[in-house]
Design a protein around this nucleic acid. Structure first.
Lengths: 359, 359
DNA sequence: GCGGAAATTTGAATCGATCCAAGAAAAATG
DNA sequence: CATTTTTCTTGGATCGATTCAAATTTCCGC
């Protein structure tokens, strides 16, 4: 079931072809890269020799060094590589990036820095013209490493206040407001917040003060948006429980347990991601609470899955694909400037929100 | 909103650092690649100079040429790049590949050959140690191009009878049989087949003879499996309509229209992919036909979505993740041999199949 | 058959590192 | 202090191509 391939001692180089065909390397090179400037007779002879010797064509490794451009953009994350194919948000983002790359014929190199040791090496040795960084948790390490490469890069999600790096994100304050207003207008007055990480790897209840000094400004801004708007409706925001999760199942469920263990159960949940929102719907449903009759939920992100879950999720949609497209263009058409773009968000009302229950 | 970055006329090279620090380039190189063999004092001095001059660290482009190994595996397809993030089958496969790459610290380079012109170039210039090819349609072109590179590569799906190339696929005949037997045992006697492409870009009804001479042996084998098994149950397979689709919505729906336009409506559909099966469920439901009460459907592939659709899909599951993992290992641990692996498949009975309707 | 223009071909230089045999310096030994 | 070891450092060779100014051919018209 396995046969050995002819053991080519050493791959054929362009120079070998040149010598065998009796021409200079320059001409041999031209035969492959600019055939039109080589006399037909010579061109055919060289090609024939190459064919006969089993030449694989100019090695991109050699060409690369000379050309300088890789024609590929790197997408980095601190998650394992499978994140790109499994996480709904990442997938939509990647589709946007793909679109831009397809249009220009660029390739995509996925690089994971999940492993502390390999993190550095993978980022340092990636053959790319620039990076797009998914700054989830531990983003600053990733950014620092990438900065070292001195290649153009864009951080997704505006996770940092550092104005010296390019980034694309959404208007989180506006998004938070939209979500809060929607619920307040439905009559809700009793809330709970499922928060994205504020910084370190931890989870649990946090105070508004802790949020205000969060490392991740996205998290901070979404909360600010929630609270600003709720205050307008006369809600006492100091009473609202805020549970910081790691945006995955375990800590989100722990948060729900904690929130619903209290006396004052919320009638509405403000979730900072669709992921958490969907986990919440599942958890509530399993506990016999109806969504939205008993509890309303608003997510954040606008991933496609949100439209398919039961009930379909009301959410603050980001233009994810467009962000991806723009990020890719920032790298592909890099002009040496730092760009920070803020995109708008949109409230999408589906069935996970409804009027506040009476009483 | 945009400030200019210091315009570095020409990036700093290792040689520049060496000269500035007053050491040979050999030593400068060692400072970065094998710091332990350099005297501490010298090492610090060189590092300081590098820091001061804003050196980005050894350029991977240079290192690559010397080292020879890219430490990345290329995944090629004739679809647009977004295919990897949107197609359910591809996504699961990529997760398997990712797993293997994460484990060894290798990167993944996605390369699309959707565009005829760029096809060649993208494959020819990809910086990878080997390729995994998603041989959907137009696969032979992709294989030919890749073969030129003379790098290790694996074709997914065993799409070709060419025994000289490495490939991993499933036992399509066994899969076809499993699906057919399941339906036959439920009492079905009236079938229709939604076939994957046989070769060229076309769709429409085909005869068993055409299938037997199909370029894509996977398609051929699945059909052979269906028919072999159905014959055992006394079904006259020459009467079974076979509609070749392009495995997407339009042609699949056209196929269903054509199939259900006839007098003898099937009570069971053998779909060669979950994708088509799910489109069929949707189409039938929209037409007021109940699945499985009126029509039973068996898919092929075993993508996760199949478990979530309504009704959940009965299917022939491939070990997709495992195939991905193995494919990646074939490249990563390439030993110069051609390997062809055939994996087993499994019937997963869910709710899209039921007893044949009476009468 | 000659001069000059146009078309080809040549070969050295370059891209940015790593490797390694040989030489130099520092440390250990007698 | 001389000698041997051990530890560092050096600089040329190499990885595999592309580029470009200069040299050579070929082609033309007369």
């Amino acid at each position: 079931m396995a046969s050995t391939i002819e053991g080519q001692a050493r791959p054929i180089r362009l120079a070998d072809i040149a010598k065998a065909a009796g021409v200079s390397h320059g001409t041999a090179s031209n035969v492959f890269s600019r055939p039109e400037i080589v006399r037909a007779e010579v061109r055919e002879r060289v090609k024939a020799v190459a064919e006969a010797m089993g030449y694989a064509g100019p090695d991109p490794k050699g060409r690369l060094l000379r050309a300088g451009k890789v024609n590929a953009i790197g997408v980095g994350t601190t998650e394992p590589l499978s994140y790109f194919f499994e996480d709904p948000f990442a997938r939509v983002m990647m589709a946007g990036i793909s679109e831009a790359c397809d249009a220009t014929g660029a390739g995509i190199a996925l690089v994971s820095a999940a492993n502390q040791e390999k993190l550095a090496w993978n980022i340092q040795s990636a053959l790319v013209d620039g990076f797009i960084l998914f700054c989830i948790e531990g983003g600053s390490r990733l950014v620092d490493l990438t900065r070292e490469r001195r290649l153009p890069f864009v951080a997704l999600e505006l996770g940092f206040h550092d104005e010296t790096i390019s980034a694309i994100g959404v208007d989180n304050i506006a998004g938070g407001r939209l979500a809060a207003r929607h619920l307040a207008e439905l009559g809700h007055r009793c809330f709970a917040v499922l928060s994205l990480p504020l910084g370190e790897d931890r989870s649990g209840f946090v105070t508004p003060e802790m949020v205000r000094s969060a490392v991740y400004t996205g998290t901070r801004d979404r909360l600010a948006g929630y609270f600003e708007e709720l205050s307008r409706f006369g809600v006492d925001t100091t009473k609202i429980p805020i549970f910081e999760t790691e945006n995955e199942e375990k800590s989100t469920k722990a948060g729900l347990e904690a929130i619903f263990a209290g006396d004052e159960r919320p009638t509405a949940i403000l979730a900072m991601s669709d992921r958490m929102a969907m986990i919440a719907i599942e958890w509530l449903t399993a506990r016999g609470l109806k969504v939205p009759q008993d509890v309303s939920i608003v997510g954040f992100d606008g991933v496609p899955d949100g439209a398919l879950c039961d009930p379909p999720l009301t959410t603050i949609a980001q233009p994810i694909t467009e962000i991806g497209r723009r990020a890719a263009h920032m790298i592909l058409d890099f002009d040496g400037t730092v760009r920070r773009e803020t995109m708008g968000v949109e409230l999408i009302v589906r069935a996970s929100t409804g009027p506040a229950p009476k009483g």
